[in-house]
């Protein structure tokens, strides 16, 4: 069975260079610094009533372009992950599949494992740890580090900024700890 290429996953050598054009595109369009995690801050500044100094600024003036970018990403996720969803299981390397099977996963279709991200999982400790705990760490960590994979990993590195190289290395240290220590503990 052949699937139209739009529905298949796109290869890294097509997606990688195009993603790499994002920082220059935003600089050319309006001298904007590519990044996504700032939106968490803008949303906090926009929504929350009690605001410490970090959240007291004109979020619309500063962040409206960034929030529109995030809204576009939501729409892009719909186009790429719902409308053009890949019907086949993810084509992981066999060793990776073996690792994840050993963790107790069986369903490799979709973008996230249904076994861990189904709504009912929120009623279990492992689901709470993964979804709520993980989400909290993403929000806390990116605010603390002043950027995420986009802002530090792509934009900061593109500008050859030393703090971004340090942040990117720390992302991987945390990721490896999470993968080999926290995840097996949560799923054990």
């Amino acid at each position: 069975m052949t699937t139209h290429w739009l529905y298949q996953p796109w290869p890294w050598y097509v997606v990688g260079p195009l993603v790499g054009l994002m920082p220059a595109t935003l600089l050319l369009l309006g001298n904007k610094l590519f990044g996504v995690s700032g939106n968490l801050r803008h949303l906090c500044a926009a929504v929350l009533p009690a605001r410490p100094a970090f959240l007291r600024y004109n979020w619309w003036q500063e962040g409206s372009w960034n929030l529109m970018l995030a809204l576009g990403i939501v729409a892009g996720g719909f186009v790429g992950g719902y409308w053009l969803a890949n019907p086949a299981p993810v084509a992981l390397a066999p060793a990776a599949l073996a690792d994840l099977r050993a963790l107790g996963l069986h369903d490799f279709t979709g973008l996230v494992p249904r076994e861990l991200f189904a709504g009912s999982q929120l009623l279990s400790w492992r689901g709470l740890g993964l979804i709520v705990g993980g989400g909290f760490l993403v929000g806390f960590g990116t605010a603390y580090a002043g950027g995420c994979t986009s802002g530090h990993g792509i934009m900061g590195v593109a500008d050859l900024q030393k703090p971004s190289f340090l942040a990117l290395a720390a992302f991987f240290v945390g990721g490896i700890l999470g993968t080999y220590v926290v995840l097996p503990w949560l799923l054990g």
């Binding site: 740890g129 993980g134 993403v138 580090a145 990117l168 240290v173 945390g174 995840l183």
Partner: peptide, 14 residues
């Protein structure tokens, strides 16, 4: 960058 980055990395893995 170090501590915040590790926190974020943990969340990224989960």
């Amino acid at each position: 960058y170090g501590v915040g980055g590790v926190c974020f990395g943990l969340g990224w893995a989960l």
